[in-house]
Design a protein around this nucleic acid. Structure first.
Length: 272
DNA sequence: CCGAACCTGTGT
DNA sequence: ACACAGGTTCGG
């Protein structure tokens, strides 16, 4: 489900309610994607959350003892606050019971496709993990962001955009949207980009991500936030999921191709 | 570089 | 029955 705007939306909602809370109890309905599998519960129970942070598409629960829980939603992972633990839904895997200022909170981790994971990490392991990512687009200047698209020279732009060690947080939707806004085809090799185009791309990446964040992200398929609400950016997409529909800029028919195994959407007329 | 894999569901 | 889905990793 999630790219930067969706994960950041979830981060903000988790942070508001979980910051300062203590994890009292964990129910593991299915432990296939929690690590370390056999010690997960004992490692996490009793911990107090100091803050929820995000790096790339990773959510980081920071604990007062400097250890952390990292969560990756991948395609369909989801945190959902529930008033009280009712009956377990089919794809619910973990139930967290927490207390904050004497009140009890319940949070469910669910994941239909089971690609997502929860992992308990030491502070050293956290630093190592977080260090593998490229710059955060919303916290990096345009000039530095533009430098993400310098090398390797023969690589296609779309591949660079999806590479989290190159630039963090961009996924399939916003890669296509940024290319369209910048007027650049995702099939272009990095070597063919001018500095002016790289700067334009960096600017448009920042714009599309922040505009989507304002709408609490895009619900193309399954994505919902921690309250079960859908994001509002779907109607503002210019190319993603619009194959055969008219370009909102020039009215040409939006084309869908496959690039690096991913569906890729572009306007053959206004993207060069 | 590409396709396959991980897993489940949905739509044609 | 087959294609496709917001992510990432692996093997060829």
């Amino acid at each position: 489900m999630p790219e930067l705007p969706e994960v950041e939306t979830v981060r903000r909602q988790l942070d508001r309610r979980l910051s300062g809370a203590t994890i009292e109890q964990i129910h593991l309905f299915w432990d296939g994607r929690v690590f370390p599998r056999t010690r997960f519960r004992s490692l996490i129970e009793g911990k107090t959350i100091t803050a929820i942070e995000r790096r790339a598409k990773l959510l980081i629960w920071r604990f007062s003892d400097r250890t952390a829980l990292i969560a990756h939603l991948k395609m369909t992972g989801n945190f959902l606050f529930v008033d009280r633990p009712g009956k377990r839904e089919k794809h619910d895997h973990v139930l967290f019971s927490l207390t904050k200022r004497g009140k009890t909170l319940f949070l469910v981790w669910s994941d239909v496709r089971k690609f997502g994971f929860l992992k308990s990490v030491s502070s050293a392991e956290l630093e190592r993990t977080v260090g593998q990512y490229g710059p955060e687009p919303l916290e990096t200047g345009v000039e530095d962001l533009a430098a993400c698209f310098l090398a390797p020279k023969t690589r296609k732009l779309k591949a660079a955009l999806l590479d989290q060690s190159c630039i963090a947080g961009v996924g399939n939707i916003y890669a296509d949207e940024a290319c369209h806004r910048a007027g650049i085809r995702p099939t272009r090799r990095l070597a063919t980009l001018s500095q002016r185009e790289r700067l334009r791309l960096a600017t448009e990446i920042r714009s599309v991500l922040s505009e989507s964040l304002e709408q609490k992200g895009t619900s193309a398929n399954d994505y919902v936030d921690t309250q079960g609400e859908r994001g509002g950016f779907l109607d503002l997409l210019r190319v993603y999921g619009r194959a055969g529909e008219p370009c909102r800029t020039c009215a040409a028919s939006i084309k869908r191709i496959v690039l690096g195994g991913r569906g890729t959407h572009l306007c053959p007329r206004c993207q060069t």
